[in-house]
Design a binder for these strands. Structure first.
Length: 421
RNA sequence: GGCCCCGUGGUGUAACGGUUAGCACGCGAGGUUUUCAACCUCGUAGCGCGGGUUCGACUCCCGCCGGGGCUACCA
């Protein structure tokens, strides 16, 4: 049985755990519900602790952390060794063997050796009898018959402790794989608290689970033949934990964006529409489908879709800056021409629109942008949108004409004002 | 301080005891183009440093430097 351990230095609050599970669910990385909470297992932990005390593998020690520091100063930084105490309030420490070393066999790092003499007799249970993490996991892993553990690099140094506990308990340890940690763009590590939050952020930012999986797999691992884009099936087939790199990586959102864009463009329209609908909290109806069809090649993330298609669903607000930039002297005339052409159009299919509007270009002898950008601003409110013919087609004749009329009206009013001024 | 891990362009990585050190993102230039993207072409930049070993080292060894982790009666 495999155990994937998260690294969270904060207390595991129920909300925290739920957040993490939520994020994992989105990534489609569900698994069986974990075991009972540590609290519910207190009895069992106590039981195994007693075994250790009985066998002499662990002992009560009244030393405080100050005492330990003092002891180490005296003994030249050797691992702390305590003295058994009768004090029932004293913490319980595990006896670390003299000499020799504890070796962690790690799937991606090979054998890592820890000299026993430099390891402290560490606390396995507090004065109140409650057990400490390194002891609890060891007991739980043994009880659950865990055979492999995958977790962050920051646990590598904890591993010898857990091995010592298991050895004292007479249990067979699992195999370990310690993955390099992830750092943010600032070079600081992405803590789990933020890690869970950031997986949620990735979802909210409109990334696709498949793209995130692909990207994450590429962090710390690469293919020999330079394959970059891989479906999840391919990932499953090719990924090899032993081939994972050993150095920590910096999370690069730019590359994720690029990768996500590739996945977005490769989706079939139904899947794309469904994903967009889910992200927007809308129904995947025909109109949304039509909108998605013309926006699919433009967006890198789900979040970027709405700005491209919003004008099809609601009256757009005019981007004044775009308006000023695009509406030049000849625009009024050209828009009037366009209006006429569109009113008279037999069909509103993109090819038909293209030839109808293209005629104006030829007649007036102007560059395409001179005509299309004003139309774009008129119908979408801004200067960025899907293809102009597709946009007109999906918007429909009635609304297209209406919006262009409004623009024409505004333009003529403005020109009246400026001439009279 | 002690113990441990890590170090290929800005970022993620590949390869190898002998190659012009490959790929991808980014960035730059050009092309295509109705906007924005996408797409195509070209370009940019790297083996942390110093010693060894070797005919030959980015690759193996040692030291240093740099980054990180553990060192809790935290998880």
């Amino acid at each position: 049985m495999l155990r994937i351990e998260d690294t969270d230095r904060e207390r595991s609050t129920p909300e925290n755990v739920e957040q993490i599970l939520d994020a994992l669910h989105w990534l489609e990385l569900d698994w069986d519900e974990g075991p009972l909470s540590q609290f519910e297992r207190a009895e069992r932990h106590r039981e195994r602790l007693d075994e250790l005390i009985e066998s002499g593998a662990a002992y009560r020690d009244a030393a405080t952390s100050k005492d330990v520091t003092a002891w180490k100063r005296e003994h030249g930084n050797r691992g702390y060794r305590g003295a058994p105490s009768e004090d029932p309030e004293a913490a319980i420490r595990l006896r670390v063997p003299e000499g020799g070393e504890t070796v962690v066999v790690d799937e991606i790092r090979g054998e890592v050796r820890f000299p026993n003499d430099s390891a402290d007799d560490f606390v396995v249970a507090r004065g109140d009898g409650s057990v400490v993490y390194n002891f609890a996991v060891a007991v739980d892993d043994a009880d659950m018959r865990i055979t492999e553990v995958i977790r962050g690099d920051d646990h590598l140094s904890n591993t010898p402790k857990q091995l010592m506990v298991m050895k004292a308990l007479g249990e067979t340890p699992p195999r370990f794989a310690h993955l390099p940690l992830l750092h943010g763009p600032d070079g600081k590590k992405l803590s789990k608290r933020h890690g869970a939050a950031s997986v949620q952020e990735l979802r909210d930012a409109g990334y696709l689970p498949a793209a995130v999986r692909n990207y994450l797999a590429l962090l710390g691992w690469g293919t020999q033949d330079d394959t970059t884009i891989m479906s999840t099936d391919e990932l499953i087939e090719r990924f090899d934990i032993a081939a994972v790199g050993r150095s920590s990586a910096i999370f690069d959102e730019q590359k994720l964006r690029w990768l996500n864009g590739r996945f977005m463009r490769e989706m079939d329209l139904d899947g794309y529409t469904a994903a967009v609908a889910r992200h927007l909290g809308r129904d995947p109806d025909e109109r949304l489908r039509a909108a998605c069809e013309i926006a699919q090649e433009k967006a890198q993330t789900l979040e970027e879709v709405w700005p491209l298609i919003g004008f099809l669903f609601e009256e757009p607000e005019t981007d004044e800056q775009a308006w000023r930039k695009v509406m030049t002297d000849g625009s009024l005339l050209l828009l009037r021409e366009a209006l006429e052409a569109l009113r008279g159009a037999k069909s509103f299919d993109p090819p038909e629109l293209e030839s109808a509007l293209g005629r104006i270009l030829a007649e007036q002898d102007v560059k395409p942008g001179k005509l299309y950008q004003p139309i774009r601003v008129a119908i979408t409110g801004g200067s960025i949108s899907p293809g102009i013919f597709e946009s007109l087609a999906v918007l429909g004749k009635h609304r297209s004409v209406e919006r262009i009329e409004r623009a024409v009206q505004r333009l003529s009013t403005e020109s009246d004002n400026s001439t009279s001024a």
